[in-house]
Simulated scan of single mutants.
Amino acid sequence: MDDAELAAAIAEEAGCLLTALADAGRLTGKALGDEGDRRANDLIMARLAADRPHDAILSEESADGPARLSARRVWIVDPLDGTREYAAARDDWAVHVGLAVDGVPSAGAVAVPRRGLVLSSAAPPPLPPEGEPLRIITSRTRPAPIAAYAAEQLGARLIRMGSAGAKVAAVMLGEADAYLHSGEQSEWDNLAPVTAALAAGLHCSRLDGTPLRYNRANVIVPDLLVCHPGRAAALVSLAAAFEVRGNP
């Protein structure tokens, strides 16, 4: 398998493990989330070690180290994105498996197991048409002020959802038109979704329009924009206006 196919296969396998663990009913709540994080991480780390033994790995659930900073190829994974949603038996959680080469998104897959979805750069869906009115997706529990501002300025409808991967999947499938996030994420929160979205023809960048870069010493990504390319310029301009107003 090439890198994108491998990412999709591993994300799907980890998603099946997580679904089976939840459906078994032996664990609930925080205990289920903790066990899901651990088991999915063990699976992903083992698969990557077996299939790409010379690549570095950055995972939310494993200890980080400086060795990856000198590696050209780094897998960046979130074994369970949306642990809160998973533990609450919701469907808006995901598995992220992505690869950055020289800091640039290269291959990635997002599994949304409860929806039976695996979206990857190996076989992305076609670019959906722009919706009218515009639909902007934001966090279910911590909605981004920039998203509310953009919705107000554009007469858009706000949609709230959990996992970042589930949000980007909604944009890829035409269920939303833009995902605006501020207030920081980590690299594992968005590398795999961004890689799949770029392959589908969507615009992905920082809110100021600059490209996203990965495998940095500081893994924090301050903000994110994923949208139909026809909307990118207007949303970047709105984000700039929001900053001028003195908003965080």
Rank of each mutant, 00 (worst) to 15 (best):
M1D: 04
M1I: 10
D3A: 15
D3C: 05
A4V: 12
A4Q: 12
L6A: 11
L6F: 12
A7I: 05
A8R: 07
E12W: 04
E12T: 03
C16H: 03
L17G: 06
L17M: 10
D23H: 04
A24L: 13
G25F: 12
R26V: 11
L27C: 13
G29E: 13
K30I: 15
G36V: 10
D37V: 06
N41T: 06
N41C: 12
D42S: 08
R47E: 14
A50Q: 11
A50H: 09
A50V: 08
A50L: 13
D51V: 04
D51T: 07
R52Q: 01
P53V: 10
P53G: 04
D55G: 03
A56P: 01
I57W: 04
L58A: 11
S59Q: 07
E60N: 05
E61Q: 10
A63L: 14
P66Q: 08
P66Y: 09
P66M: 08
R72G: 00
R73H: 14
V74M: 13
W75C: 01
W75S: 00
V77S: 03
L80R: 04
T83Y: 03
T83F: 06
T83C: 05
R84Y: 07
E85V: 04
A88G: 00
R90Y: 07
D91M: 00
D91E: 02
D92L: 01
D92T: 02
A94S: 15
H96N: 15
G98F: 12
G98K: 10
L99R: 07
A100C: 05
V104Q: 09
P105N: 11
P105H: 11
G108E: 09
G108V: 11
A109I: 11
A111Y: 14
P113C: 15
R114D: 12
R114Q: 13
S120F: 12
S121I: 09
S121C: 09
A122V: 12
P124C: 14
P125F: 15
L127I: 07
G131A: 07
P133V: 07
I137Q: 01
I137K: 01
T138K: 00
R140D: 02
R140V: 01
R140N: 00
P143A: 06
A144E: 05
P145W: 11
A148R: 08
A150D: 01
A151P: 02
A151I: 06
E152T: 04
L154I: 07
A156P: 02
L158H: 12
I159A: 12
I159R: 07
R160D: 10
M161V: 09
S163H: 13
A164S: 15
A164D: 11
G165H: 10
V168S: 03
V168K: 02
V171N: 03
M172F: 07
G174R: 02
A176Y: 10
A178F: 02
H181E: 00
H181T: 00
E184R: 02
E184P: 00
W188I: 00
D189F: 10
A196T: 03
A200T: 07
G201K: 03
H203Q: 08
R206V: 04
D208A: 02
D208W: 05
G209C: 13
T210P: 09
P211A: 13
L212D: 13
L212M: 15
R213L: 13
R213G: 06
R216E: 08
A217D: 14
N218R: 10
V221F: 02
V221Q: 02
L225P: 00
L225S: 02
V226T: 14
C227H: 04
A233S: 08
A233V: 04
V244T: 14
R245W: 02
R245Y: 02
G246F: 14
P248N: 06
